[in-house]
């Protein structure tokens, strides 16, 4: 009598699915066991990935089998690794600042440049292009649709930004209120924000529902497999 891997995987998947579903009755040891197992397996897997896919191919190979240039380039991150290891000593922890400064500085530069070039400027241009009828026509977008989409996007952008304007002045009765126009625009902006959050929630629900369907489908498939077995 042999057990196919699908059967073993199906049993394990069924058990851990039930353990996770046990969270319906609250936090319990079964749920914790499943969580701890996932965390432990994930940590072990990440460590193995770091060794086999980072240290050995990107540091060990160049140092042992690479050319002189590759060794030199590999020695720089090795030196940075040694500097970061100095954090273990209170007296030598300052040495690690050089490596950390390099990482933070380079990361900040890359992130800022990517955000400006890849998100800020293109999104500003896209918001403006909503009213570009030629561009809309090139994308098979009609006039009304383009104007309507552009108007909604423009209104949603302005009203949503106005909603977050919290400047107010004291009134005669002593209350602090924003100007009436701002109040109205902010109220409309709150609608846009609500719709956006509703869309996000719908997407989250759709993703969760799909995950649930996949799990239940797997259970059904397991039972079908167990029934066939």
């Amino acid at each position: 009598m042999t057990f196919s891997p699908d059967l073993i995987i199906g049993v394990i998947s069924f058990i851990f699915t039930i353990l996770i579903f046990s969270y319906l009755i609250g936090d319990n040891p079964l749920f914790r066991i499943a969580v701890y197992l996932f965390v432990g397996v994930s940590a072990g897997y990440v460590a193995a990935i770091a060794v086999w896919q980072v240290l050995i191919p990107r540091l060990g190979y160049p140092l042992w089998f690479g050319s002189l240039n590759e060794k030199i380039f590999a020695a720089v991150p090795l030196l940075g690794v040694l500097f970061i290891f100095m954090k273990a000593s209170s007296r030598l922890s300052g040495v690690a600042r050089m490596t950390m400064a390099f990482l933070v500085g380079a990361g900040a530069a890359v992130i800022l440049a990517g955000a400006v070039i890849g998100t800020l400027i293109p999104q500003v241009e896209a918001t403006i292009n909503f009213f570009d009828l030629n561009a809309a026509a090139s994308r098979n977008i009609g006039f009304m649709e383009a104007i309507g989409n552009g108007s909604i996007v423009l209104a949603g952008t302005i009203f949503s930004l106005v909603y977050f304007h919290f400047g107010a002045s004291p009134k005669a009765d002593g209350s602090m209120r924003r100007p009436k126009v701002i109040e109205i625009i902010a109220w409309v902006g709150r609608i846009f924000i609500g719709i956006t959050l509703g869309a996000i929630f719908a997407g989250v629900y759709a993703a969760a529902l799909t995950a649930l369907i996949e799990r239940i489908s797997s259970l059904i498939n397991f039972f079908k497999l167990f029934g066939n077995f």
Binding site: P122, Q123, A126, T196, A199, I200, A202, G203, V204, A206, A207, T210
Partner: peptide
């Protein structure tokens, strides 16, 4: 995923 689609739609 459906949960990230609204964020990626502007791109």
């Amino acid at each position: 995923s459906a949960q990230a689609a609204p964020m990626i739609q502007p791109y």
